[in-house]
Design a protein around this nucleic acid. Structure first.
Lengths: 145, 145
DNA sequence: CTTCAATTCTTGAATATTCAATATTTTCAA
DNA sequence: TTGAAAATATTGAATATTCAAGAATTGAAG
């Protein structure tokens, strides 16, 4: 059997992704903390801001949280009057989530903080690299399904 | 004031990174679960497998965990006799971590599972895309410091 | 129609992570 | 040399996440 070459951890795609994600997420977190909102809540508000009702399952997929975690986060957001639940009339197992007016106001503020960050990345990292990286990430995600 | 265009969440770099990271990590987790080891422990073993002693702070940075989380994970790994602590003789505030023989054996098995995954990615995603993605990620990480 | 499996969401207990505070050691200025 | 500040690691309490089980509803086969 051939000896495995010992690949340093920094050369693994999984590690590079984790590292990049951690760093970018940390920066975004820092911005959003101005409004005292965790990144996941921004994602939720953003997905719901199309005004349509989204079931919990759909939301969980979209915002990269598993179901129980989402349920508990939504509980908090309902307390803060950012979103509200409506039973789906067509399938009463489902709960449809909607964004409130208060949620919309907050979401706009958060969007602009997030856009700030993207612009900051564009400056230091470059236009070309950024769009190329996005393209490659999308295609990686595609090829993983 | 100009109206902000409403960028869909799927176009944010932060989101794409989170999504890709989640997916790749999930796959790796699945492989490593064959040996019942979380991804973070594999990272720790891998970093320590140079045989040198690494302080907790150094390790925490390298494996993307914050200090208290690492301390507790190391406690478990010490119980499993995968690693051990030695007080740094040159600076007694520090603790140097070392990998045990048992840890080395496990690390080799894990490495080969991880290499399997990388190869699987190479197949479905392509050689060229993979190395280009790695390059871009490294440069993003660089530009963020 | 009835029943049983599948789907959807929530709950509670177990587990893990984080924050703030602590203990220890080192550094360095006075 | 002394004492205050910084660096390092750990601990315990507060918080968050996850796993497994449960409740409600739907779907679909017999």
């Amino acid at each position: 059997m051939a000896k495995q070459p010992n690949v340093p951890i920094t050369e693994h795609l999984a590690y590079l992704l984790a590292q990049a994600n951690r760093e970018i997420n940390r920066q975004l977190e820092l911005r959003l903390s101005k409004e005292g909102v965790p990144v996941e809540q921004w994602r939720i508000l953003k997905v719901l801001s199309d005004g349509d009702g989204h079931s919990m399952g759909e939301l969980a997929d979209a915002v990269l949280l598993n179901h129980p975690t989402l349920t508990k986060m939504i509980d908090r957001m309902v307390s803060d009057a950012l979103v509200y639940r409506v039973q789906d009339p067509n399938d009463r197992r489902k709960v449809l989530m909607f964004i409130s007016d208060r949620g919309k106001v907050l979401c706009r503020k958060l969007n602009s903080l997030a856009v700030d960050q993207e612009e900051h990345i564009l400056e230091s990292y470059g236009d070309k690299s950024t769009s190329e990286l996005k393209r490659l990430l999308e295609s990686l995600i595609d090829s993983s399904n």
